[in-house]
């Protein structure tokens, strides 16, 4: 093509021109670019998790991503379907699932979770774009109910030189809050992530950085994170569980899977509404259910369940918040 540009001999028209519907120009941002941006946005929190918890955390991430991509590839290969692993969505699912687990989680169970996410939740419903609930979240809940013992731990950072079997499982800030509102965790620790927890959930700050990256790159819009976090903030400010309204609110915002959920799980394209109003309602709904489960449910944390419940309502949220077409607004009754 470069040669053509610089040559002076005239170029002839081809025998056949493409005749297609307009537009004849397209944006250069495609699905793989969006998924790549999500992976980039997850990196700060993920790398911090690996730095904080050690190589076992890295192993979990790598195994999870590999299993998801391989499962999708093999499924599509066996069923003679177009291979879509290059779009990057399977890798995102794998990384999200790993980041949602404690670094002590056994690898065989992780692989079972990955297979559940990709094969059952995603592919059986028709693949990317057709799944009803978020595959990573559904798999997390699946693992949570199948292997509660492995999931329940809240492993602290392993001491230098200690093996991962020595990791001490402690109570989570959210379970302490649930039991009586006394917690020795500081908001600063939870914000910066210098605490125990799931690999990718510990550092609220770095998850925020990733979320801001997604917003700046216009991969996601502000509606869902803002209404999700806003609803949790307002509810926990009004009904504090710990001492001090503001501190209680900050504690609730930084603890558990809220940041990861609000920026990376609830904003999953496929399983969230497409309308602005729908997104605001969806975020508010997730926020309210999260707080209700945290306060009154059987579990200390409710982000996964809240988003999954929201996922099921997406079609109706879209339908009820369908915008009025331009020009139809001023219809007089």
């Amino acid at each position: 093509m470069q040669e053509q540009l610089h040559s002076t001999t005239p170029v002839a028209l081809p025998d056949q021109l493409t005749v297609a519907a307009s537009p004849h120009e397209k944006s250069r941002t495609h699905v793989p670019h969006l998924m790549r941006d999500v992976l980039i946005a997850l990196m700060p929190a993920c790398l911090f998790g690996i730095f904080w918890f050690g190589w076992q955390a890295a192993l979990l991430c790598v195994v999870s991503v590999t299993t998801c991509v391989a499962a999708e590839y093999l499924y599509q290969r066996l069923l003679h379907r177009p291979i879509t692993v290059r779009d990057g969505s399977a890798a995102v699912t794998g990384l999200l699932l790993a980041m949602n687990l404690p670094y002590t989680f056994p690898l065989p169970m992780l692989i079972v979770g990955d297979l559940f996410a990709i094969l059952v939740v995603k592919q059986l419903f028709g693949g990317l774009g057709k799944n009803i609930v978020n595959p990573a979240l559904a798999a997390r809940v699946f693992l949570f109910s199948s292997f509660p013992a492995a999931m329940a731990g809240f492993p602290a950072r392993p001491g230098l030189g200690s093996s991962y079997a020595d990791a001490v499982a402690t109570a989570t800030p959210l379970s302490l809050l649930k039991e009586g509102g006394v917690t020795e965790f500081s908001v600063t620790d939870l914000f910066f992530g210098t605490t125990g927890g799931c690999i990718g959930e510990v550092s609220a700050l770095l998850l925020l950085v990733g979320g801001v990256y997604l917003l700046c790159r216009r991969v996601i819009t502000w509606h869902i994170p803002a209404s999700y976090l806003g609803t949790v903030a307002i509810l926990t400010l009004l009904f504090p569980r710990a001492d001090g309204r503001l501190e209680s609110m900050l504690l609730e915002l930084c603890a558990g899977g809220l940041m990861l959920g609000a920026f990376f799980m609830a904003t999953d394209y496929v399983t969230s509404p497409v309308t602005r109003g729908g997104r605001l309602l969806f975020g508010a709904l997730c926020g309210a259910i999260t707080v209700l489960i945290r306060y009154f449910g059987a579990y200390p944390e409710g982000v996964s369940f809240a988003i999954l419940i929201g996922n099921l309502l997406v079609y109706y949220l879209d339908k009820f918040t369908r915008p009025t077409p331009f020009g139809k607004r001023r219809a007089k009754k």
Binding site: T221, Y269, R322
Partner: peptide, 23 residues
């Protein structure tokens, strides 16, 4: 047409007629 709709909602955001093109 390499992909199915991933429901990203970009078409909804840009539609000057405020329609739901993906649907």
């Amino acid at each position: 047409g390499e992909h199915d709709c991933i429901r990203c909602g970009r078409c909804v955001g840009v539609c000057p007629m405020h329609l739901l093109p993906n649907y």
